[in-house]
Design a protein around this nucleic acid. Structure first.
Length: 883
RNA sequence: GGGCGAAUAGCUCAGCGGUGAGAGCGCCUGCCUUACAAGCAGGAGGUCCUCCGUUCAAAUCGGGGUUCGCCCACCA
């Protein structure tokens, strides 16, 4: 064993060992615990958020596996429609090409090749993190099985009338040249301008003022609307104004519509049905035409020669100039408003009138809401997300599922040019089922990538086929994801699950936060603060990364990842490594592991560590059931470092070197036994190092990963266990007090000093001197003419309280003074506590509202403090004598 | 415009009604003690944001405020 833990060779070796042993495959026995991975996008390398997400899933899977459950974690990747197409277009651009130059088929082929490589890379990264997915069951949203699921789902929804064609205003990305769904649009605050423009009355009788943030869309105006009950404009409704753009003659009727807010701007609204959703609604009510001013690239259409080809911002300037010259621009004010941006490419989206495929969401959402109300779930962790989820479902709008892209699932619908009807089918029908014509053509669009994602928990198990996996592992146990895809993914999976199988695809949803840098900023490529998990693993090891995640995560909070945390995790794991080394290096060659040690062989400190192990184990169980990863890792960290290493191993070390082989055998057996349990408890968080240490045991029947964890049994004599806990407290306090005394008196820690003591429990006669580096003197009274003493709590919960007193030879005057000062401070604090306890108890008698157990605790505490006070006063008298 | 979350030691965070409010890092002091200097031992450091309320009892529960962060939203 290396003196310090070296992660890299170990991680490689251990992962190969697991794969060779098929350790990730389900056992097919016992209670089922299944997870489907949130499939990473094939767009490239994984970021630190993926590392967190997958570490958490792996922790859950490994924990369940150790509990003997039949665990299955299905891995896979997502083809990521727009994102991937954008990446490929960028690559092509570097080569001086466009996708149109390649053509659709060649572009898809090129993309497919690129994603194959990317997928391999992703799998390699996941493996580096130590995840225990069943790699044989890998799925891809664009592979054959998943394609079958997508087609089936589409056809069923189409035939049910849930999928339909709609002509309406959608969000359009002029860069990606595709429609987007509502949630693919991110609203950002923009400092824009509000322009007030004069619209002259047709017959020259006055004018109306209209406020707009987008003067370029005036080109598409078809009317001006006011609120019907707005008195300012009561005489205007029914009259006509002229389009204020010089050179274009268009008459605009003035209409009254409730949708206009009289409070905003001038109270008059220009109506541009082709470029604004509200205007479009109004135009339908008033049977107004729509005029498209901007084309698919957000450039002015060729219908307006003076502006044709200008992009929307250039056009805005030119229109404003023209208005100004014509004297029609009343005023320009700065204006802060939220504007939609494309989630994928970041540019401003355009509201655009277009014909798209939509999915009716109300009926699907209703099922999800009913499931929530009837307790079918899913249950969110933390539960506060339930409200967010519910609200979104309640306010859901139809989902625009068509994309004008090449990369994705082609929409399995065929248009008949003779009867103008669509037919959904797995492949192109020879004849139109409606009119028997042979003039069917496939729909040119592809599906929103989230459509296939929504089917993921079904499709990975082979749905629509009734596979064995589907029957056994679906619905899954838990979904682990970040909150940013709650609507995109989680809600839609629930709706599709209910629609197609009548079940919620996962019982629980664990929602974790995002990873931020040390300054609390979101990690992004543009901010340059992206952390590559592989670099972290390179520097600290995968176990450190995983442990740091679990140690730092807080339910529902974002995580600030810092070098500190990683370094802390590394040190801890190294500590574990060295504790293991101490034990393993002391095992005699003929040591037989797993031997039974009868209770009588346990010394009190063995009993103490075992009792503590039992307590810690059940606490780990409890906390894991609540997904309290932080609680579990803190508990294990504190126990392993603070109790097992600092006290137990330090105390039993002497027995390791004992000349009595029987004594050695017993203590090593107990140490190994405790260590084995600790490795199991820690394994989900730090799989590599724990597995590696496990291999050093003499007769490990199986790998740690597939071992079965059983709750450690407390030793039988409950009284003795309690006494061991009390003895430990006395032990620890004694050693600490003596060390501190040494420090105060200016002695070196390792210098052996003499101590005389009374009332020390016999069990401590060896260990206190050993760890505090002292020699205990015997005799009926202190051997020095002048002494000082220390008082240590023995058993604080017992009544009457017990204390241990240690006597030392009188130190220098300066030391006495220092001690005296310290004692006085201590005593005044104690007096305060005594007083407050007395007051509390007195009040308690009067009010009679305080539970008996609380009062009892206070009484014991008070008794302790008072006894202690007496001892302090004695010591004070002693100390004063020496001045 | 709605909704949510956070404020505790210099930094990052635990604790979420009843012992003297904790940890890691950083800082100070002393140690290379044959498992570990990625370590050991000792120490300093806190009006638990603010006000009001509930309670016998509040860092912890409720309300108002302040500051920061996030999500949702078609007011041009």
């Amino acid at each position: 064993m290396e003196k310090s833990y070296q992660p890299h060779p170990v991680e490689e070796e251990i992962y190969q060992k697991w794969e060779k042993e098929n350790a990730f495959s389900p056992s097919q026995k016992g209670k089922v615990f299944s997870i489907v991975i949130p499939p990473p996008n094939v767009t490239g390398i994984l970021h630190i958020g993926h590392a967190l997400n997958n570490s958490l899933q792996d922790i859950l899977i490994r924990f369940a596996r150790l509990q003997g459950k039949d665990t299955l974690w299905v891995p896979g990747t997502d083809h990521a429609g727009i994102a991937t197409q954008n990446v490929l277009e960028r690559i092509l651009m570097e080569e001086g090409k466009t996708r149109y130059m390649l053509g659709r088929e060649a572009f898809i082929q090129r993309t497919r090749e690129w994603t194959e490589k990317s997928r391999e890379q992703i799998v390699a990264q996941l493996k580096a993190m130590g995840v225990s997915c069943d790699w044989g069951k890998q799925a891809y949203t664009l592979d054959e099985v998943r394609t079958q699921a997508v087609k089936t789902a589409f056809i069923r929804l189409f035939n049910k009338g849930f999928i339909y064609r709609g002509h309406r205003i959608i969000h359009w990305c002029p860069r990606c040249t595709t429609a987007l769904s509502d949630i693919e649009v991110e609203h950002k605050e923009i400092h824009g301008k509000l322009y007030t423009v004069k619209y002259l009355e047709k017959k020259g009788r006055g004018f109306l003022c209209v406020a707009t943030t987008r003067p370029e869309t005036i080109l598409g105006d078809v009317a001006v609307a006011v609120h019907p009950s707005d008195e300012r404009y009561s005489t205007w409704v029914g009259r006509t104004v002229l389009l204020p753009i010089p050179g274009i003659h268009r008459e605009l009727p003035i209409i009254g519509d409730e949708a206009v807010d009289p409070e905003f701007g001038t109270g008059a609204l220009k109506i541009t049905p082709a470029h604004d959703p509200v205007d479009y609604e109004i135009s339908l009510r008033h049977h107004l035409p729509s005029i498209e001013a901007l084309n698919e690239h957000a450039r002015i259409s060729s219908d307006f020669p003076a502006y044709a080809g200008l992009d929307r911002f250039e056009a805005r300037e030119k229109v404003v100039d023209a208005l100004q010259q014509a004297g029609l621009l009343m005023k320009v004010e700065p204006y802060l408003h939220a504007v939609g941006h494309c989630q994928r490419c970041g540019i401003m989206v355009e509201p655009r009138l277009s014909r798209q495929w939509f999915l009716s969401m109300k009926p699907l959402a209703k099922k999800a809401l009913d499931a929530l109300d009837s307790g079918k779930g899913p249950a969110f962790i933390p539960p506060s997300w339930t409200k967010v989820y519910r609200r979104w479902l309640e306010e859901i709008r139809d989902w625009c599922i068509s994309r004008q892209l090449w990369w994705g699932h082609p929409i399995p619908a065929y248009f008949c040019s003779s009867c103008q009807q669509y037919t959904a089918a797995e492949s192109q029908p020879a004849r139109c089922p409606h009119c028997e014509a042979t003039s069917l053509t496939p729909d040119p669009d592809v599906l929103d990538t989230w459509f296939s994602s929504a089917l993921w928990p079904l499709s990975v198990f082979g749905w629509p086929k009734e596979t064995d996996d589907l029957k056994r592992y679906y619905p899954t146990s838990i979904l682990v994801t970040a909150f940013d895809i709650l609507f995109f993914w989680v809600a839609r999976m629930v709706m599709f699950g209910l629609e197609f199988t009548d079940s919620v695809p996962f019982k629980e949803v664990y929602i974790h936060g995002l990873i931020r840098d040390i300054q609390g900023r979101k990690m992004s490529k543009s901010a340059g603060n992206v952390v590559d998990p592989l670099e972290v693993i390179q520097e600290y090891g995968a176990d450190s990364l995983r442990f740091a995640f679990a140690y730092t995560i807080s339910e529902g909070q974002d995580i600030l990842l810092s070098e500190d945390k990683l370094e802390g995790a590394r040190r801890f794991l190294n500590k574990l490594w060295n504790a293991s080394r101490l034990i393993l290096l002391n095992l005699p060659p003929d040591f037989v592991d797993g031997q039974y040690i009868p209770q009588v062989e346990y010394e009190w400190i063995d009993r103490w560590i075992w009792t503590r192990l039992c307590q810690v184990s059940s606490e780990v169980q409890q906390k894991m059931a609540l997904y309290d990863f932080q609680g579990v890792t803190h508990l294990l960290y504190d126990f392993i470092w603070g109790e097992f290493c600092d006290w137990y191993l330090e105390a039993v070390k002497v027995r390791y070197y004992s000349s009595n082989p029987e004594k050695r055998r017993v203590v090593l057996h107990i140490s190994v036994k405790v260590l084995r349990y600790l490795l199991q408890l820690l394994h989900p968080f730090a799989p590599f190092i724990t597995e590696k240490i496990w291999t050093f045991f003499r007769d490990s029947p199986s790998s740690l990963i597939t071992s079965t964890w059983k709750h450690p049994e407390p030793l039988l004599d409950e009284q003795a266990n309690k006494r061991a806990l009390a003895l430990f407290q006395a032990f620890e306090e004694s050693v600490r007090a003596i060390r501190k005394f040494k420090k105060i008196t200016g002695r070196a820690v390792e210098e052996i000093i003499e101590v005389w003591q009374v009332s020390l429990p016999p069990e401590l006669l060896e260990l206190v001197p050993a760890l505090s580096k002292t020699t205990f003197l015997s005799g009926v009274s202190p051997p020095w003419p002048e002494t000082v003493h220390l008082t240590v709590r023995y058993d604080p919960v017992s009544a009457p309280p017990q204390f241990i007193r240690y006597y030392f030879e009188k130190p220098d005057r300066a030391v006495i003074e220092k001690r005296l000062e310290e004692k006085r401070k201590e005593m005044s604090l104690r007096d305060g506590r005594i007083q407050s306890l007395r007051d509390k108890l007195k009040e308690a008698e009067v009010s009679g509202k305080i539970p008996e157990d609380v009062k009892q605790k206070w009484r014991v505490k008070l008794q302790n403090e008072e006894t202690r006070k007496q001892l302090d006063e004695e010591e004070l008298i002693y100390l004063r004598q020496f001045l």
